[in-house]
């Protein structure tokens, strides 16, 4: 293949990442120049840790958006609470087991997520409304069950995820990075990934091609909820505790991360690497703005502008003329 064609194909693959990469570079530059002591291993490590939690949730939501049909998931906040409440407190025959805890939490999340999937796919309730209502419902159920009083006994292995492996990377960050690589490979190389993207692109055509569209359309909601539940366990590990109202911002932030990362809202084109980058952008942006002592209103305003900018650059549908 000649050089021009190679460059072109590389460009078309990478152009969706440009906003996120650009944002990270810009923020990194601003903070190094203008904020004393921002660029030290501990601070970056902490930012990456927080971004890891957001990244897991965002990757789950990526599945839903990639599957198309205006899918999205705003119920992730409540699923995180469920994961955080249940996961860390599990003991198996008196022993801690991180893997088993994750498994249990994934199953619970998947079951709850099924309700979202059924409501959206079979009952045709718009995803925005269905997942928002479920978010309130599941949270309300947790409040009813616990009266908002929670205790968590963190397994030592979960707390150990905060440990440094190689500055500034901590165990949790590497774990999430591994998940990201696995998912991205799955998306681009495996049959399931292909089916997912085809479903997102055009459901009718996918059906005609023998793809189990119903299973995928419902399944992605289960995956999203399961990953959100895992994210909740990780959040508990990071903060050391669980409060009913500690995940309120996550649904919107996870969506924003996916968008900034270049996944197309219409579906069909998705990227897990992008979603992780989006999570980093948001966490970094928040930290930088905090370091500048900006009032809460200004921070929210700027985040909105950044998002809008990314959308205008990245996320426009074709002209009707075409």
């Amino acid at each position: 293949m000649n050089k021009q064609a190679l460059a072109k194909s590389l460009y078309s693959k990478l152009k969706d990442y440009i906003p996120a990469a650009g944002a990270i570079a810009a923020l990194g530059l601003i903070s190094t120049i203008l904020i004393d002591g921002f660029m030290n291993a501990n601070n970056i490590g902490a930012i990456l840790l927080r971004a890891s939690v957001l990244a897991i949730v965002a990757m789950g939501v990526t599945f839903v958006i990639t599957a198309g049909d205006s899918g999205l998931d705003l119920s992730t906040g409540s699923l995180m609470v469920v994961g955080a409440m249940v996961g860390p407190n599990l003991r198996f025959g008196g022993q801690e087991s991180l893997i088993l805890s994750f498994l249990v939490v994934i199953v619970i999340g998947a079951l709850i997520g099924c309700v979202n999937g059924v409501g959206v796919y079979y009952l045709k309730i718009p995803a925005l409304v269905m997942t928002m209502a479920m978010n309130g419902l599941v949270t309300g159920f947790c409040i009813l069950l616990t009266r908002s009083q929670l205790t968590v006994n963190l397994p030592a292995k979960l707390v150990a995820l905060n440990d440094v492996v190689v500055e500034p990377f901590r165990k949790m960050t590497l774990l999430v990075a591994a998940v990201m690589i696995l998912l991205q490979l799955m998306l681009t190389k495996s049959k399931f990934g292909q089916m997912l993207q085809l479903t997102g692109n055009n459901r009718q055509a996918a059906r005609l091609n023998g793809i189990p569209v119903a299973a995928i359309a419902v399944g992605v909601y289960s995956i999203s909820s399961a990953m959100a539940a895992v994210g909740g366990v990780l959040l508990a590990g990071y903060t050391g505790l669980v409060h009913i109202d500690m995940t309120v911002e996550y649904p919107m932030q996870a969506m924003a991360a996916v968008i900034i990362g270049g996944t197309h809202a219409a579906g069909g084109v998705g990227s897990f690497v992008g979603s992780v980058m989006g999570a980093i952008v948001l966490t970094l942006l928040n930290s930088v703005l905090l370091a500048f002592n900006m009032p809460a209103g200004a921070r929210t305003f700027i985040q909105g502008l950044v998002l809008l900018g990314v959308l205008i650059i990245n996320n426009r549908s074709a002209k009707l003329r075409q």
Binding site: L72, G304, L305, R316, S317
Partner: peptide, 26 residues
């Protein structure tokens, strides 16, 4: 005009308005 997806576009303008409101009157 810019043909951004409506849900996402207003998802982005929403914090713009809210942030301004909080900025003017915290």
């Amino acid at each position: 005009v810019l043909r951004v997806n409506p849900l996402l576009a207003t998802f982005a303008t929403s914090p713009v308005y809210w942030g301004l409101a909080l900025w003017i009157m915290p």
